[in-house]
Design a protein around this nucleic acid. Structure first.
Lengths: 199, 199
DNA sequence: CATCCTACCAAACAACTGTTTGTTTTGGGA
DNA sequence: TCCCAAAACAAACAGTTGTTTGGTAGGATG
Protein backbone atom coordinates (compact mmCIF):
# COMPACT_ATOMS: atom_id res chain seq x y z
CA UNK A 1 0.00 0.00 0.00
CA UNK A 2 2.67 2.48 0.95
CA UNK A 3 5.83 1.14 -0.69
CA UNK A 4 6.87 1.16 -4.33
CA UNK A 5 4.13 0.15 -6.67
CA UNK A 6 5.66 -2.76 -8.52
CA UNK A 7 8.51 -4.27 -6.51
CA UNK A 8 6.36 -5.35 -3.63
CA UNK A 9 7.57 -8.94 -3.62
CA UNK A 10 11.30 -8.30 -3.40
CA UNK A 11 10.92 -6.23 -0.24
CA UNK A 12 13.90 -4.00 -0.79
CA UNK A 13 15.04 -1.11 1.36
CA UNK A 14 14.03 2.37 0.24
CA UNK A 15 16.71 4.93 -0.41
CA UNK A 16 17.42 8.07 1.54
CA UNK A 17 17.07 10.46 -1.37
CA UNK A 18 13.55 9.26 -1.97
CA UNK A 19 11.46 12.05 -3.45
CA UNK A 20 8.14 10.42 -2.67
CA UNK A 21 7.24 12.91 0.07
CA UNK A 22 7.93 15.69 -2.42
CA UNK A 23 5.48 14.09 -4.81
CA UNK A 24 2.81 13.75 -2.16
CA UNK A 25 3.23 17.35 -1.04
CA UNK A 26 3.05 18.65 -4.58
CA UNK A 27 0.02 16.52 -5.38
CA UNK A 28 -1.73 17.64 -2.21
CA UNK A 29 -1.05 21.26 -3.03
CA UNK A 30 -2.41 21.02 -6.55
CA UNK A 31 -5.38 18.84 -5.64
CA UNK A 32 -6.32 21.27 -2.88
CA UNK A 33 -5.93 24.41 -4.98
CA UNK A 34 -7.04 23.37 -8.45
CA UNK A 35 -8.95 20.18 -7.81
CA UNK A 36 -8.20 16.66 -8.93
CA UNK A 37 -9.37 16.79 -12.51
CA UNK A 38 -7.71 20.10 -13.19
CA UNK A 39 -4.32 18.88 -12.04
CA UNK A 40 -2.13 17.05 -14.53
CA UNK A 41 0.57 14.57 -13.75
CA UNK A 42 2.93 17.02 -15.42
CA UNK A 43 1.96 19.71 -12.92
CA UNK A 44 2.82 17.43 -10.03
CA UNK A 45 5.99 16.07 -11.59
CA UNK A 46 7.19 19.57 -12.41
CA UNK A 47 6.63 20.81 -8.88
CA UNK A 48 8.48 17.80 -7.53
CA UNK A 49 11.36 18.43 -9.93
CA UNK A 50 11.01 15.34 -12.03
CA UNK A 51 9.55 13.99 -15.26
CA UNK A 52 5.91 12.90 -15.53
CA UNK A 53 6.75 9.28 -16.26
CA UNK A 54 8.82 9.00 -13.10
CA UNK A 55 5.72 9.30 -10.95
CA UNK A 56 4.67 5.87 -12.11
CA UNK A 57 7.50 4.27 -10.26
CA UNK A 58 5.78 5.28 -7.02
CA UNK A 59 2.13 5.09 -8.05
CA UNK A 60 0.39 2.84 -10.50
CA UNK A 61 -1.97 5.59 -11.62
CA UNK A 62 -3.13 9.11 -10.94
CA UNK A 63 -6.05 7.71 -8.97
CA UNK A 64 -3.74 5.72 -6.73
CA UNK A 65 -1.80 8.90 -6.06
CA UNK A 66 -5.04 10.55 -5.02
CA UNK A 67 -5.77 7.70 -2.63
CA UNK A 68 -2.38 8.18 -1.00
CA UNK A 69 -2.97 11.91 -0.53
CA UNK A 70 -6.49 11.27 0.71
CA UNK A 71 -5.28 8.73 3.27
CA UNK A 72 -2.63 11.10 4.55
CA UNK A 73 -5.23 13.84 4.76
CA UNK A 74 -7.57 11.72 6.87
CA UNK A 75 -4.65 10.71 9.07
CA UNK A 76 -3.78 14.34 9.74
CA UNK A 77 -7.28 15.58 10.49
CA UNK A 78 -7.87 12.66 12.81
CA UNK A 79 -4.62 13.46 14.56
CA UNK A 80 -5.66 17.09 14.89
CA UNK A 81 -8.98 15.99 16.32
CA UNK A 82 -7.58 13.63 18.94
CA UNK A 83 -6.55 16.17 21.60
CA UNK A 84 -9.95 17.84 21.39
CA UNK A 85 -11.59 14.57 22.39
CA UNK A 86 -9.86 14.37 25.75
CA UNK A 87 -12.29 14.53 28.69
CA UNK A 88 -12.41 18.25 29.04
CA UNK A 89 -13.97 20.55 31.54
CA UNK A 90 -17.15 21.58 29.81
CA UNK A 91 -18.89 19.42 27.17
CA UNK A 92 -19.70 22.55 25.22
CA UNK A 93 -16.08 23.52 25.30
CA UNK A 94 -15.33 20.08 23.99
CA UNK A 95 -17.72 20.48 21.08
CA UNK A 96 -16.15 23.82 20.35
CA UNK A 97 -12.70 22.26 20.44
CA UNK A 98 -13.76 19.53 18.06
CA UNK A 99 -15.13 22.08 15.60
CA UNK A 100 -12.08 24.28 15.92
CA UNK A 101 -9.76 21.32 15.31
CA UNK A 102 -11.77 20.28 12.30
CA UNK A 103 -11.71 23.79 10.87
CA UNK A 104 -8.02 24.24 11.49
CA UNK A 105 -7.11 21.01 9.78
CA UNK A 106 -9.44 21.96 6.99
CA UNK A 107 -8.50 25.57 6.37
CA UNK A 108 -5.01 26.28 7.56
CA UNK A 109 -2.95 23.33 8.66
CA UNK A 110 -2.07 21.80 5.34
CA UNK A 111 -3.27 21.02 1.86
CA UNK A 112 -3.91 17.40 2.74
CA UNK A 113 -6.99 18.10 4.80
CA UNK A 114 -8.46 20.32 2.13
CA UNK A 115 -8.16 17.54 -0.41
CA UNK A 116 -10.38 15.25 1.66
CA UNK A 117 -13.15 17.81 1.65
CA UNK A 118 -12.70 19.29 -1.79
CA UNK A 119 -12.14 16.25 -3.99
CA UNK A 120 -15.22 14.19 -4.67
CA UNK A 121 -14.79 10.43 -4.65
CA UNK A 122 -16.67 10.22 -7.96
CA UNK A 123 -13.85 12.14 -9.59
CA UNK A 124 -11.78 8.98 -9.43
CA UNK A 125 -14.31 6.24 -10.21
CA UNK A 126 -11.85 3.39 -10.02
CA UNK A 127 -10.99 4.10 -6.39
CA UNK A 128 -14.15 5.90 -5.35
CA UNK A 129 -15.15 3.29 -2.78
CA UNK A 130 -11.81 3.50 -1.05
CA UNK A 131 -12.06 7.28 -0.86
CA UNK A 132 -15.55 7.05 0.59
CA UNK A 133 -14.30 4.54 3.14
CA UNK A 134 -11.52 6.90 4.17
CA UNK A 135 -13.93 9.79 4.49
CA UNK A 136 -16.41 7.71 6.46
CA UNK A 137 -13.63 6.62 8.73
CA UNK A 138 -13.00 10.20 9.69
CA UNK A 139 -16.64 11.19 9.90
CA UNK A 140 -17.27 8.37 12.32
CA UNK A 141 -14.61 9.85 14.54
CA UNK A 142 -16.49 13.11 14.34
CA UNK A 143 -19.77 11.32 14.96
CA UNK A 144 -18.44 9.66 18.09
CA UNK A 145 -17.27 13.03 19.33
CA UNK A 146 -20.81 14.32 19.06
CA UNK A 147 -22.27 11.13 20.45
CA UNK A 148 -20.22 11.56 23.59
CA UNK A 149 -21.67 14.99 24.23
CA UNK A 150 -24.23 15.30 27.01
CA UNK A 151 -27.11 16.90 25.12
CA UNK A 152 -30.81 17.18 25.83
CA UNK A 153 -32.55 13.80 25.48
CA UNK A 154 -34.56 14.62 22.40
CA UNK A 155 -31.69 16.04 20.39
CA UNK A 156 -31.44 14.72 16.83
CA UNK A 157 -27.75 13.93 16.87
CA UNK A 158 -27.64 12.84 13.25
CA UNK A 159 -29.13 16.10 12.07
CA UNK A 160 -26.78 17.95 14.37
CA UNK A 161 -23.79 16.18 12.88
CA UNK A 162 -24.90 16.80 9.30
CA UNK A 163 -25.65 20.42 9.99
CA UNK A 164 -22.43 21.12 11.82
CA UNK A 165 -20.21 19.24 9.39
CA UNK A 166 -21.90 20.93 6.47
CA UNK A 167 -21.49 24.39 7.92
CA UNK A 168 -17.85 23.69 8.73
CA UNK A 169 -16.94 22.08 5.44
CA UNK A 170 -18.66 24.73 3.39
CA UNK A 171 -16.47 27.34 5.06
CA UNK A 172 -13.82 26.28 2.58
CA UNK A 173 -15.85 28.26 0.06
CA UNK A 174 -15.88 31.62 1.77
CA UNK A 175 -13.01 31.43 4.23
CA UNK A 176 -10.20 33.92 3.72
CA UNK A 177 -7.02 33.54 5.69
CA UNK A 178 -6.08 36.42 7.97
CA UNK A 179 -9.60 37.31 8.99
CA UNK A 180 -11.51 35.38 11.63
CA UNK A 181 -9.49 32.42 12.84
CA UNK A 182 -10.90 28.89 12.74
CA UNK A 183 -11.20 28.96 16.52
CA UNK A 184 -13.29 32.14 16.43
CA UNK A 185 -15.53 30.70 13.73
CA UNK A 186 -15.99 27.48 15.69
CA UNK A 187 -17.01 29.41 18.77
CA UNK A 188 -19.43 31.51 16.78
CA UNK A 189 -21.13 28.52 15.22
CA UNK A 190 -21.41 26.60 18.46
CA UNK A 191 -22.83 29.67 20.16
CA UNK A 192 -25.56 29.81 17.55
CA UNK A 193 -26.58 26.30 18.46
CA UNK A 194 -26.17 26.80 22.17
CA UNK A 195 -27.95 30.08 22.66
CA UNK A 196 -31.58 29.83 21.62
CA UNK A 197 -32.62 32.09 18.78
CA UNK A 198 -36.08 32.20 20.21
CA UNK A 199 -36.54 33.85 23.53
CA UNK B 1 -26.06 38.05 -23.65
CA UNK B 2 -28.73 35.57 -24.58
CA UNK B 3 -28.83 35.62 -28.38
CA UNK B 4 -26.51 34.01 -30.90
CA UNK B 5 -22.85 34.52 -30.23
CA UNK B 6 -21.64 36.15 -33.41
CA UNK B 7 -24.52 37.85 -35.18
CA UNK B 8 -25.31 40.25 -32.39
CA UNK B 9 -25.24 43.31 -34.59
CA UNK B 10 -27.67 42.21 -37.28
CA UNK B 11 -30.41 41.50 -34.73
CA UNK B 12 -32.22 38.79 -36.64
CA UNK B 13 -35.18 36.74 -35.55
CA UNK B 14 -34.49 33.30 -34.09
CA UNK B 15 -35.98 30.26 -35.69
CA UNK B 16 -38.64 27.98 -34.26
CA UNK B 17 -36.61 24.80 -34.46
CA UNK B 18 -33.94 26.31 -32.31
CA UNK B 19 -32.20 23.64 -30.25
CA UNK B 20 -30.66 26.07 -27.82
CA UNK B 21 -32.87 25.00 -24.90
CA UNK B 22 -31.84 21.42 -25.57
CA UNK B 23 -28.22 22.46 -25.29
CA UNK B 24 -28.80 24.28 -22.04
CA UNK B 25 -30.69 21.37 -20.54
CA UNK B 26 -28.01 18.89 -21.57
CA UNK B 27 -25.24 21.12 -20.27
CA UNK B 28 -27.04 21.64 -16.97
CA UNK B 29 -27.52 17.92 -16.58
CA UNK B 30 -23.88 17.08 -17.20
CA UNK B 31 -22.49 19.98 -15.20
CA UNK B 32 -24.68 18.99 -12.27
CA UNK B 33 -23.87 15.30 -12.39
CA UNK B 34 -20.25 15.15 -13.50
CA UNK B 35 -19.01 18.65 -12.82
CA UNK B 36 -17.81 21.29 -15.25
CA UNK B 37 -14.31 20.07 -15.95
CA UNK B 38 -15.37 16.48 -16.37
CA UNK B 39 -17.96 17.35 -18.99
CA UNK B 40 -16.80 17.65 -22.57
CA UNK B 41 -18.41 19.65 -25.31
CA UNK B 42 -18.89 16.34 -27.09
CA UNK B 43 -20.92 15.03 -24.15
CA UNK B 44 -23.24 18.00 -24.34
CA UNK B 45 -23.49 18.03 -28.12
CA UNK B 46 -24.23 14.32 -28.19
CA UNK B 47 -27.01 14.62 -25.65
CA UNK B 48 -28.50 17.48 -27.63
CA UNK B 49 -28.28 15.44 -30.83
CA UNK B 50 -25.77 17.54 -32.66
CA UNK B 51 -22.08 17.84 -33.45
CA UNK B 52 -19.62 19.45 -31.04
CA UNK B 53 -18.71 22.28 -33.36
CA UNK B 54 -22.32 23.32 -33.68
CA UNK B 55 -22.40 24.45 -30.07
CA UNK B 56 -20.17 27.34 -31.03
CA UNK B 57 -22.89 28.92 -33.04
CA UNK B 58 -24.75 29.56 -29.78
CA UNK B 59 -21.86 30.07 -27.39
CA UNK B 60 -18.45 31.53 -27.96
CA UNK B 61 -16.82 29.09 -25.57
CA UNK B 62 -17.45 26.37 -23.03
CA UNK B 63 -17.09 28.96 -20.29
CA UNK B 64 -19.77 31.15 -21.82
CA UNK B 65 -22.06 28.13 -21.91
CA UNK B 66 -21.43 27.67 -18.21
CA UNK B 67 -22.35 31.29 -17.56
CA UNK B 68 -25.65 30.79 -19.34
CA UNK B 69 -26.49 27.70 -17.29
CA UNK B 70 -25.38 29.44 -14.12
CA UNK B 71 -27.58 32.45 -14.81
CA UNK B 72 -30.57 30.27 -15.50
CA UNK B 73 -29.87 28.37 -12.30
CA UNK B 74 -29.82 31.54 -10.22
CA UNK B 75 -32.99 32.70 -11.90
CA UNK B 76 -34.78 29.49 -10.98
CA UNK B 77 -33.68 29.32 -7.36
CA UNK B 78 -34.60 32.95 -6.87
CA UNK B 79 -38.00 32.26 -8.36
CA UNK B 80 -38.45 29.29 -6.05
CA UNK B 81 -37.50 31.47 -3.11
CA UNK B 82 -39.87 34.30 -3.89
CA UNK B 83 -43.11 32.82 -2.53
CA UNK B 84 -41.38 31.87 0.71
CA UNK B 85 -40.54 35.52 1.29
CA UNK B 86 -44.14 36.66 1.38
CA UNK B 87 -45.20 38.07 4.77
CA UNK B 88 -46.18 34.83 6.40
CA UNK B 89 -47.76 33.95 9.66
CA UNK B 90 -44.80 33.06 11.80
CA UNK B 91 -41.28 34.41 11.15
CA UNK B 92 -39.88 31.02 12.05
CA UNK B 93 -42.18 29.43 9.56
CA UNK B 94 -40.85 31.90 7.05
CA UNK B 95 -37.26 30.93 7.76
CA UNK B 96 -38.23 27.31 7.41
CA UNK B 97 -39.95 28.04 4.12
CA UNK B 98 -36.89 29.84 2.83
CA UNK B 99 -34.67 26.89 3.73
CA UNK B 100 -37.10 24.40 2.25
CA UNK B 101 -37.31 26.37 -0.98
CA UNK B 102 -33.56 26.59 -1.17
CA UNK B 103 -33.16 22.87 -0.58
CA UNK B 104 -35.84 21.96 -3.08
CA UNK B 105 -34.31 24.08 -5.80
CA UNK B 106 -30.96 22.64 -4.88
CA UNK B 107 -31.73 18.96 -4.60
CA UNK B 108 -34.78 18.07 -6.59
CA UNK B 109 -36.23 20.74 -8.80
CA UNK B 110 -33.75 20.76 -11.63
CA UNK B 111 -30.13 20.40 -12.59
CA UNK B 112 -29.72 24.14 -13.01
CA UNK B 113 -29.81 24.86 -9.32
CA UNK B 114 -27.31 22.15 -8.56
CA UNK B 115 -24.85 23.67 -11.00
CA UNK B 116 -24.79 26.95 -9.10
CA UNK B 117 -23.77 25.16 -5.92
CA UNK B 118 -21.56 22.45 -7.36
CA UNK B 119 -19.48 24.27 -9.95
CA UNK B 120 -16.77 26.48 -8.54
CA UNK B 121 -16.24 29.81 -10.25
CA UNK B 122 -12.49 29.14 -10.34
CA UNK B 123 -13.15 26.23 -12.67
CA UNK B 124 -13.79 28.76 -15.42
CA UNK B 125 -11.17 31.44 -14.73
CA UNK B 126 -12.09 33.62 -17.67
CA UNK B 127 -15.65 34.16 -16.43
CA UNK B 128 -15.09 33.53 -12.71
CA UNK B 129 -16.04 37.06 -11.69
CA UNK B 130 -19.34 36.87 -13.49
CA UNK B 131 -20.15 33.58 -11.82
CA UNK B 132 -19.32 35.01 -8.42
CA UNK B 133 -21.54 37.98 -9.15
CA UNK B 134 -24.42 35.69 -10.05
CA UNK B 135 -23.94 33.65 -6.90
CA UNK B 136 -23.69 36.77 -4.75
CA UNK B 137 -26.85 38.06 -6.34
CA UNK B 138 -28.72 35.05 -5.10
CA UNK B 139 -27.06 34.95 -1.71
CA UNK B 140 -28.09 38.53 -1.09
CA UNK B 141 -31.66 37.47 -1.65
CA UNK B 142 -31.10 34.82 0.96
CA UNK B 143 -29.39 37.33 3.23
CA UNK B 144 -32.32 39.72 3.03
CA UNK B 145 -34.64 36.88 3.95
CA UNK B 146 -32.66 36.35 7.12
CA UNK B 147 -32.31 40.06 7.75
CA UNK B 148 -36.06 40.41 7.78
CA UNK B 149 -36.42 37.83 10.52
CA UNK B 150 -37.23 39.14 13.99
CA UNK B 151 -34.39 37.57 15.97
CA UNK B 152 -32.91 38.35 19.37
CA UNK B 153 -30.99 41.63 19.29
CA UNK B 154 -27.52 40.16 19.75
CA UNK B 155 -27.85 37.52 17.05
CA UNK B 156 -24.91 37.33 14.65
CA UNK B 157 -26.88 37.29 11.44
CA UNK B 158 -23.84 36.91 9.23
CA UNK B 159 -22.71 33.82 11.07
CA UNK B 160 -26.24 32.52 10.98
CA UNK B 161 -26.39 32.97 7.24
CA UNK B 162 -23.04 31.29 6.65
CA UNK B 163 -23.90 28.42 8.93
CA UNK B 164 -27.32 27.81 7.47
CA UNK B 165 -26.26 28.16 3.86
CA UNK B 166 -23.31 25.89 4.47
CA UNK B 167 -25.40 23.21 6.10
CA UNK B 168 -27.97 23.41 3.31
CA UNK B 169 -25.51 23.47 0.44
CA UNK B 170 -23.45 20.63 1.83
CA UNK B 171 -26.54 18.45 1.84
CA UNK B 172 -25.84 17.95 -1.85
CA UNK B 173 -23.07 15.63 -0.69
CA UNK B 174 -25.11 13.24 1.42
CA UNK B 175 -28.66 13.74 0.18
CA UNK B 176 -30.33 10.72 -1.38
CA UNK B 177 -33.63 11.16 -3.14
CA UNK B 178 -36.57 9.25 -1.74
CA UNK B 179 -35.58 9.50 1.90
CA UNK B 180 -36.21 12.63 3.93
CA UNK B 181 -37.71 15.34 1.80
CA UNK B 182 -36.14 18.80 1.55
CA UNK B 183 -39.01 20.19 3.60
CA UNK B 184 -38.39 17.72 6.40
CA UNK B 185 -34.68 18.46 6.39
CA UNK B 186 -35.32 22.19 6.49
CA UNK B 187 -37.62 21.81 9.46
CA UNK B 188 -35.09 19.65 11.25
CA UNK B 189 -32.27 22.13 10.74
CA UNK B 190 -34.31 25.13 11.76
CA UNK B 191 -35.49 23.29 14.85
CA UNK B 192 -31.91 22.73 15.87
CA UNK B 193 -31.33 26.46 15.80
CA UNK B 194 -34.63 27.34 17.37
CA UNK B 195 -34.71 24.92 20.26
CA UNK B 196 -31.76 25.48 22.55
CA UNK B 197 -29.40 22.57 22.90
CA UNK B 198 -28.62 23.74 26.38
CA UNK B 199 -31.41 23.60 28.91
C1' DC C 1 -41.15 32.23 -55.91
C1' DA C 2 -36.63 34.05 -54.79
C1' DT C 3 -33.81 35.31 -51.33
C1' DC C 4 -31.39 35.61 -46.85
C1' DC C 5 -29.70 34.32 -42.80
C1' DT C 6 -30.40 31.05 -39.00
C1' DA C 7 -28.68 26.88 -37.55
C1' DC C 8 -26.48 23.30 -38.37
C1' DC C 9 -22.90 19.59 -40.57
C1' DA C 10 -18.30 17.76 -41.67
C1' DA C 11 -13.72 17.63 -40.88
C1' DA C 12 -9.95 19.00 -39.22
C1' DC C 13 -6.55 21.50 -35.89
C1' DA C 14 -3.04 22.00 -32.17
C1' DA C 15 -2.59 21.25 -27.50
C1' DC C 16 -2.91 18.42 -23.75
C1' DT C 17 -4.12 14.14 -21.19
C1' DG C 18 -2.57 9.71 -18.51
C1' DT C 19 0.46 6.19 -19.38
C1' DT C 20 4.20 2.90 -21.24
C1' DT C 21 8.61 1.38 -22.58
C1' DG C 22 13.54 1.03 -22.73
C1' DT C 23 17.55 3.00 -20.79
C1' DT C 24 20.47 5.26 -17.53
C1' DT C 25 22.07 7.06 -13.12
C1' DT C 26 23.12 6.39 -8.33
C1' DG C 27 23.04 5.24 -3.48
C1' DG C 28 23.76 1.61 0.02
C1' DG C 29 24.95 -3.16 1.57
C1' DA C 30 28.23 -7.15 0.72
C1' DT D 1 35.39 -2.27 -4.52
C1' DC D 2 31.69 -4.55 -6.57
C1' DC D 3 27.08 -4.97 -7.57
C1' DC D 4 22.17 -4.82 -7.63
C1' DA D 5 18.10 -2.77 -7.06
C1' DA D 6 16.00 1.81 -6.26
C1' DA D 7 14.80 5.75 -8.64
C1' DA D 8 14.92 8.42 -12.09
C1' DC D 9 15.40 9.97 -17.27
C1' DA D 10 14.05 10.39 -22.24
C1' DA D 11 10.88 9.82 -25.55
C1' DA D 12 7.19 8.40 -27.28
C1' DC D 13 2.13 6.46 -27.44
C1' DA D 14 -2.94 6.72 -28.38
C1' DG D 15 -6.78 9.15 -26.97
C1' DT D 16 -9.28 13.32 -25.72
C1' DT D 17 -9.79 18.15 -25.19
C1' DG D 18 -11.78 22.90 -26.75
C1' DT D 19 -12.05 25.18 -30.87
C1' DT D 20 -11.96 26.73 -35.93
C1' DT D 21 -13.05 26.83 -40.67
C1' DG D 22 -15.69 26.26 -44.79
C1' DG D 23 -19.69 24.62 -46.57
C1' DT D 24 -24.90 23.84 -46.72
C1' DA D 25 -29.87 22.54 -45.70
C1' DG D 26 -34.13 24.89 -44.79
C1' DG D 27 -37.34 27.83 -42.33
C1' DA D 28 -38.75 32.64 -42.59
C1' DT D 29 -39.47 36.92 -45.12
C1' DG D 30 -40.09 40.05 -48.99
Amino acid sequence: MSGPARHASTAAAPRADNRLPLILDAAARFFAEKGYGYTSMRDIAGAAGMLPGSLYYHFASKEELLVAVYAEGVRRIKAALAPALAPDVDPWQRLENVCAAHLTGLLEDSDYGQVVIRVRPDDAPEVAERLVALRDDYEQTFARAIQALPLPPRTDRRALRLMLLGALNWSQTWYRSGRDSPAVLARRFVRLLRDPLER
